[in-house]
Design a protein around this nucleic acid. Structure first.
Lengths: 196, 196
DNA sequence: GGAGCCATGTAACCCGTTACATGATTAC
DNA sequence: GTAATCATGTAACGGGTTACATGGCTCC
């Protein structure tokens, strides 16, 4: 239920058209709430219908640029949402499921983990470049809060990188001691309490 | 597209009924691929239709327990999927969007961040308990791979905890120096290159 | 025979994904 | 005038969420 709120946040910073929002979502806000232009257009329609935003400087329908701005009702809704309690969502991570699957089925995950390692290293470098470029020296309060968001990105990518490095090391020493192949014939795994 | 694979992974470890799977998904596998019983029943139906699993020890329809086991075709599909390249998915994090929103709208996020801190501290403690209980001393290869998955859980919760602690500290020193309330009257924010 | 739980299932809705369609503007 | 790009939009599908329905078993 929060693509709407992410869009309200973006429009609260600056009135924008759908495509401008889509492009802004490729960076900054989109790092933590990605969205395609199709989703954004649908949501803009709904937000306008609900009276939280308005179209300004109308430029007609298909093909013409439509710029939207947030209304006071939209800010009210944003304030309400900021203050609301909302638990962190569980993260889906197919790589972890595959590691788990490989523990009973075998298979060489090293190339894939190395590939992910590089992706996270690149993302980390990108965040660090943003940090150097935009968050040096004395910061306004607004900027300091934006910095907090970037800091989470840095933390997350570092954690992924650390995990990948540890995993690569552990799997290399494992595969050095034997040839690859299925690890277990028996599908049952060791599970002392039957609660796995 | 990988709830099916998560279920195949679970069934490869041990044949199970729908509800047993749902319960197993509340722990272990479900930490990285959560699923409700409704999803699981739907997926079991489709997997059986596609010939990747079979019902064994049939107990009739509504109200009777149905136990499923993986077929060799299911294992083939799992092997194929383990080896396939699949990029890490972007993570949606509504707390980060709210921090960003609060940077132009104001609002006190400290209570919410403290609440999240406690949730992550509890989850970390849970993972550490599992580590102590199940991953001490010499480990089989199977168990070592399962340990890798747990290690990612530990990394992730530690990163969240660290971020929360840093955020709490920074926001406390900020709010100590002024009263709460909107930070900016002007919805436009500082954005040197217009690329935020 | 009713309360509570185990177990499977249906239905409606929302959101995200993918593929495609169409109009407007600019560059040559 | 046509190709490329900007910009908005439609349609179909699939997965996840929530609420609810139903049958069977056990305990008292």
């Amino acid at each position: 239920m929060s693509l709407a709120h992410a869009i309200l946040t973006a429009l609260n910073e600056r009135p924008s058209s759908g495509l401008e929002l889509a492009r802004r979502f490729d960076r900054s806000i989109g790092y933590f709430w990605p969205a395609t232009h199709q989703q954004i257009y649908r949501e803009l329609r709904d937000l306008e219908r609900d009276g939280l935003i308005v179209e300004v400087a109308d430029g007609g329908g298909r093909g013409g640029k439509r710029t939207y701005a947030i209304l006071e009702e939209g800010r009210d809704e944003l304030r309400r949402w900021i203050a609301a309690a909302e638990d962190p969502k569980h993260i889906k991570d197919s790589l972890m499921v595959r590691v788990r699957a490989s523990s009973s089925l075998g298979g060489d995950l090293l190339p894939e983990i190395r590939r992910h390692r590089e992706i996270h290293a690149r993302q980390l470098a990108e965040y660090e470049a943003i940090e150097k470029r935009d968050f040096q020296g004395a910061l306004s309060e607004i900027r300091r809060r934006q910095y907090l968001v970037l800091q989470w990105g840095l933390h997350l990518q570092k954690a992924r990188l650390d995990w990948a490095d540890a995993a690569i090391e552990q799997l290399e020493t494992l595969s050095a001691s034997r040839g690859e192949g299925p690890i277990a014939q028996d599908p049952m795994i060791h599970d002392p309490k039957g609660t796995s």
